[in-house]
């Protein structure tokens, strides 16, 4: 009865009762796969290597866009721009390329006048930020070949080319069986990245090897649009990179829950890693069709010139 009166008064515009309305952390969690998401529309591009799906909630509202980029045959490749004037770098790079999608990548901090990449950042072998961010547990390596590898820094070890193990967060030296000498992890990794012209950035790792890396209910501080970069194998074992753009305003925990459940339970993907991309003040997303035309998908609020970093995919 009391609740009914409060609801009535609140609805009638009694502002002093609004703080008695349910608080954000008391809102029940999203129910999950049963009534969250389903694929509504599917379109195939770039000879079947790229697929676009509009994802809806079961009550018919648009939940987001899912762009699946198949890595089979190495025809769809990734390129990351970590620093500098990324929009002009992107403009000159894309000439003659068949760009599939582009979006903002890792998080940055600072004012609109100065942006600093959060966490360890290396751009094409050039170290931009040497300082590891302890809050960002996902270390992403974008290879010059267009592939992406993700490591869980909380699991302590980063595998370099499947050969050696490096605990980047350790300041202690240890003996490397491969190198046959004592090494210092970060120094060793930086040298490797410079020699291999690797591009590296840090971000939040949401799911790793099919295991959520967060308690969904705890990640409910702020509702916003979300964007995830997912590395997943389909039922045939092919590796796919997926950009999942959540248009609905969601808590990070709920959006992660919904997207992971959709991929794992409904679509049968083996999720290697799911990463959180920046959708804050530098939010940009664009998807292109076969002819290079812009597709009407949920776009980030900012123009490409505002971005401090960019992740682009191209077809060749």
């Amino acid at each position: 009865m009391k609740l009914l009166i409060i609801s009535l008064l609140t609805a009638l515009g009694f502002p002093f009762f609004t703080d008695l309305a349910p608080k954000a952390d008391h809102i029940p969690a999203r129910p999950g796969i049963e009534d969250c998401t389903s694929l509504k529309t599917t379109q195939i591009y770039h000879k079947g290597y790229v697929e676009w799906n509009e994802v809806q909630t079961l009550d018919g509202l648009k939940f987001g866009d899912m762009v699946t980029l198949s890595r089979r045959d190495g025809r769809v490749n990734a390129k990351y721009f970590a620093s500098g004037s990324v929009s002009s770098r992107f403009s000159s790079w894309k000439a003659g390329k068949n760009v599939v999608a582009v979006c903002s990548g890792a998080f940055t901090e600072g004012s609109s006048f100065f942006q600093k990449p959060v966490g360890l950042t290396i751009d094409d072998g050039q170290v931009i930020n040497r300082v590891l961010d302890p809050k960002m547990d996902g270390l992403v390596i974008v290879y010059a070949t267009g592939g992406i590898a993700v490591s869980d820094l909380d699991n302590k070890f980063l595998v370099l080319g499947g050969q050696d193990y490096v605990d980047l967060r350790s300041s202690f030296k240890y003996y490397s069986d491969i190198e046959k000498r004592v090494i210092y992890p970060l120094s060793y990794f930086l040298t490797w990245a410079q020699e291999n012209r690797a591009t590296v950035f840090q971000t939040q790792l949401l799911v790793y090897e099919n295991e959520p890396q967060m308690v969904y209910e705890k990640a409910r501080t702020e509702q916003a649009n979300r964007r995830f970069l997912i590395l997943a194998r389909d039922f045939t074992g092919n590796l796919n990179h997926i950009i999942f753009n959540v248009c609905a305003s969601e808590y990070l925990g709920d959006a992660t829950h919904s997207v992971f459940d959709l991929l794992r339970q409904k679509l049968g993907y083996d999720v290697i890693a799911m990463l959180n991309l920046d959708t804050g003040a530098k939010d940009h997303f664009q998807f292109y069709n076969d002819l290079g035309g812009k597709q009407p998908v949920c776009q980030g609020g900012q123009s490409i010139s505002e971005c401090s970093n960019l992740i682009a995919y191209y077809f060749e």
């Binding site: 004012s111 006048f113 600093k116 930020n129």
Partner: peptide
């Protein structure tokens, strides 16, 4: 330049206006 970027304090309102 040594890859240890520091976030400077945000400019004052007057500085922002001039920019």
């Amino acid at each position: 330049a040594l890859a240890y970027p520091v976030t400077p304090p945000p400019p004052s309102d007057l500085e922002k206006l001039i920019i």
